[in-house]
Amino acid sequence: MDWLPVAVVILLAMGFNYTNGFHDAANAIATSVSTRALTPRIALAMAAVCNLAGAFLGTKVADTVGKGIIDPPSGTEGLLIVGASLVGAISWNLLTWWRGLPSSSSHALFGGMVGASLIAGSTVLWGGVWSKIVVPMVISPIVGLALGYLVMALILWLFRRAHPGRTARGFRLSQTVSAAAMALGHGLQDAGKTMGIVVLALSVGGYHSGASIPLWVKVSSALVISLGTYSGGWRIMRTLGRRIIHLDPPHGFAAESSAAAVLFIAGLGFKAPISTTHTITSSIMGVGATRRLSAVRWGVAGNIVAAWVLTFPGAGIVAALAYWVAHLFV
């Protein structure tokens, strides 16, 4: 098969990867910036480096995305499906970024894959969709919410007699570590998803076989998501860092460390491609609820949850339209 269609799909994958980076930059650093633990540019640089490193921590998430969700046919038809999937995901990322909503780039990609496959009459592995997308999509925010609440409650109890000023300074320094862990988890999860979709494109195009991931795919996926992260996503950063709840350093540390723990356990332990956005947002809500339930701006949280619910079908519809239009010309 001609290499040009494969190259176009790979460029689309890297475009999605870049939008994933700037769309989800807030996931790693919004809390650290809002508490002034780190300046925005230093935080973005650290997140970019940690995203790069996190991409090399494992390939379990890439394996799940590449083989466990759809089974497109080989040749041009398969490349159309994969390409339309990426168009749907990129479009949804740009729309939610413009609206300042921290939606899931991961579920935009998965929704695009399913939507394009359905309109094409291709195979959707519904067992994989259920066990690897739907179940983690429901469980990970619940775990993030509960763990954030418990970690913050433990911090409040351990430091109940500590001097507030010294405690805040200590946690401001600790946030450097927790933000780095969050960025590593983001690299592990989200760069892995791009690796998986690139390998899928190479496979249906006849340029790859087997389960291995070429080194150039790992390196390019890691570099592009890092560049995207460094470019920043200020609209979403304001939502996560300020609009849900006013965060101080202890709350920021609790949210970041809780979310990072969920990302690593899911990615390394269960091969589950969960949403970094869902995880950090729910963790922020959990730590905020330790003050009082009314301290969380539930109206803002409701808008975020609505974006979560709409992401999968919304990206799927756009991907289906992209496939239909592309099929008219191929």
Rank of each mutant, 00 (worst) to 15 (best):
S117I: 00
G121L: 06
T123P: 02
T123W: 08
L125K: 09
L125P: 00
W126K: 00
V129F: 04
W130R: 10
I133P: 00
V134E: 01
V135P: 02
P136M: 06
I139P: 00
S140Y: 01
S140M: 06
P141Q: 06
I142G: 03
I142A: 11
A146E: 02
L147P: 00
L150W: 10
M152Q: 10
A153Q: 11
I155V: 13
L158D: 03
A162D: 15
A162I: 13
A162W: 13
H163M: 11
G165N: 10
G165W: 01
R166E: 14
A168V: 12
A168F: 08
A168W: 08
R169W: 15
R169P: 02
R169C: 07
R169K: 12
G170V: 02
G170R: 12
F171N: 00
F171L: 06
T176F: 09
T176L: 13
V177R: 04
A179Y: 02
A180I: 10
A181F: 09
M182R: 03
M182Y: 03
G187I: 03
Q189I: 11
D190I: 08
D190M: 07
D190T: 12
A191N: 04
A191M: 05
G192T: 08
G192V: 08
M195K: 08
G196N: 09
G196R: 08
V198C: 08
V198F: 06
V198P: 07
V199K: 01
L200R: 08
A201E: 03
L202K: 04
V204P: 06
